[in-house]
């Protein structure tokens, strides 16, 4: 890759890496592991860089790479990950509730098979439409819908087991929308 291509890659990577890392975290439940996923994904993007379309194609390819790496690594792990306890600095009075909420969410996500988890994260965190999720996962839109439905069902069941209730705000945007850093 020439100097110009490399500088463009660096600018792209710097801009989108934080958002990709957040998506990867929701896919794996561990910030260090998420950084590893994004690093491997960015290496794949670097290798493919000269062939990639600019603008939308770059982010879509990078997202697809992150999801692919996360799913591959989830399959290779022999046991399910333990939800992270890295919650950062918070005020004492709301920290306990938020920690409990977050642990419940991450535990429930950890119970999902990798593709269901990817569907839930891409649909409800990245706010991607069904078609964009299908593109990221390399599957049909019908599969995205059924995997998402099963994922939500499992999440709701996990919340119910802990005496909670999970609700989904209606009206997930149909169009692909980037989560900006």
């Amino acid at each position: 890759m020439g100097r110009r291509g490399e500088s463009e890659f660096v600018a792209f990577a710097e801009a989108c890496r934080p958002a990709l890392r957040r998506t990867a975290f929701l896919m794996c439940g561990d910030w260090d592991h998420a950084a590893d996923i994004v690093q491997e994904a960015m290496i794949r993007v670097y290798v493919a860089w000269p062939r990639l379309e600019q603008d939308h194609g770059l982010r879509a390819y990078a997202r697809r790479a992150v999801v692919s790496v996360a799913i591959e690594q989830a399959r290779k792990r022999s046991s399910r990950e333990v939800p992270t306890d890295q919650i950062g600095d918070r005020r004492v009075d709301d920290a306990a509730d938020q920690l409990a909420d977050r642990l419940l969410l991450m535990s429930a996500l950890a119970e999902l098979p990798a593709r269901q988890r990817a569907c839930v994260v891409l649909r409800f965190y990245e706010d991607l439409g069904v078609e964009a999720v299908a593109e990221a996962l390399g599957c049909r839109t019908g599969t995205v819908k059924s995997q998402t439905a099963r994922g939500l069902e499992a999440l709701r069941a996990a919340y119910a087991r802990h005496g909670g209730e999970l609700v989904v705000r209606p009206g997930v945007p149909a169009e692909a929308k980037e989560v900006t850093p």
Partner: peptide
């Protein structure tokens, strides 16, 4: 306890720790 999924997902990543990884590593490996 009722939890809204969109909000819960965003809250879960709201305090990401500092990313110490180096893009130079990516470029070298690539």
């Amino acid at each position: 306890m009722s939890t809204e999924l969109h909000a819960a997902l965003r809250e879960a990543v709201s305090d990401a720790p500092f990313d110490e990884s180096d893009l130079r590593t990516v470029i070298d490996a690539g």
